[in-house]
């Protein structure tokens, strides 16, 4: 082997070592917000819009990390194993509860500690603007004849749960079918394949603004400020409300000071006029919950979901 070759080999090995040890130390406080959503997905967009405002109010550097895979299982595992020093949080959505219940991930939702809640995604029932159904009652009457067709965005999801429970509580027997996401289902509402769909307000906003959809009911405790004319399900005589949460969770064992800092910052954040305009445009509903409330809420949400999945035989 020529000498030149050996020297270049050594140089390469040196570079190799440098490449491996390339972890850079960051003196500033860095807070990583982990989401299971891909860049551009629902939770990702939510976090990226949140981050500059958090940095302004709380100081430090906030970054968003997409830990995809396993429908949230990987993100949960990453957060559960992290040090509870306030440097790593997980953006919670109902997905992490469903994944915990539907499969056997290495860390479940109960292995994380809910920190605070920020928002709710308003869930609505809607139909096409040119459909023959103008009210929820029309849709329910149709379903009473055994002809109704309802849609939910995903097979094992909060929307499915809403539709199944509505069917039970209203005592009607529609066919309920599921899709791969809100967009897929939206088409089937627009082309009148479905009488009614259940989904997030955000997903249907463009069609709603264009006057192609009609809201039938809000599946929450209160009416939406953007649509004061649309009554909740409870107001329409069906005792059903869900809250699709968006908040943060961290590893177990976070200190009281850490929790208190977030509990103080989030209400200020939600009142911030600039941010407020942004999240109202994105159809998010402010829903601050302090640590204690959030933990109890999560426990109840998990128990309710588990009961639903068990009762319907999705899990044994």
């Amino acid at each position: 082997m020529p000498v030149g070759g050996r020297i270049s080999l050594l140089a390469l090995l040196a570079a190799l070592a440098a490449a491996c040890g390339g972890g850079d130390a960051e003196p500033r406080r860095v807070v990583t917000l982990v989401t299971h959503s891909s860049p551009g997905g629902g939770s990702d967009v939510f976090l990226r819009e949140l981050v500059p405002h958090l940095a302004r109010l709380m100081g430090g550097t906030f970054i968003v990390e997409n830990v995809q895979g396993g429908s949230g299982a990987k993100a949960m595992a990453a957060v559960a194993q992290a040090k509870p020093d306030g440097s790593l949080f997980y953006a919670t959505t109902p997905t992490f509860i469903y994944t915990s219940l539907l499969s056997d991930p290495s860390a479940r939702y109960t292995d994380l500690e809910p920190l605070v809640n920020l928002f709710f995604d308003p869930e609505v029932l809607y139909t096409a603007a040119d459909s023959r159904f103008t009210t929820l009652r029309d849709v329910l009457d149709r379903a009473r004849t055994g002809q109704g067709r309802w849609g939910a965005a995903n097979p094992a999801s909060l929307e499915r749960q809403v539709m199944e429970q509505l069917k039970q509580k209203a005592g009607v027997s529609p066919a309920i079918t599921t899709f791969e996401g809100g967009g897929d289902m939206l088409i089937n509402v627009l082309n009148h394949t479905l009488d009614m769909g259940a989904g997030e307000l955000q997903e249907i906003r463009a069609q709603l603004d264009a006057g192609r959809l009609r809201l039938l009911a809000v599946v929450g405790d209160e009416r939406l400020p953007q649509f004061p004319g649309v009554a909740t399900l409870k107001e329409q005589g069906v005792d059903l409300a869900v809250r699709k949460f968006r908040g943060l969770a961290g590893p177990k064992g976070m200190s009281a000071e850490l929790v208190a800092a977030w509990e103080a910052a989030v209400p200020k954040l939600l009142d911030d006029p600039v941010y407020r305009k942004r999240y109202m445009d994105n159809s998010l509903q402010p829903g601050f919950m302090p640590h204690g409330d959030y933990a109890r809420f999560m426990e109840a949400f998990g128990a309710e979901t588990e009961a639903f999945l068990r009762q319907s035989g999705v899990i044994q």
Binding site: R6, L9, L12, L16, A19
Partner: peptide, 30 residues
């Protein structure tokens, strides 16, 4: 031989630059 070893090491670094540095894919650091 040495040439193969050199190519392997150089290739690995090029791949690291490509996937980890440029594309930002978090391959395990070990």
């Amino acid at each position: 031989n040495g040439q193969i070893a050199t190519v392997a090491a150089a290739g690995a670094i090029v791949f690291w630059l490509l996937f980890v540095r440029l594309l930002g894919i978090p391959h395990p650091p070990g």
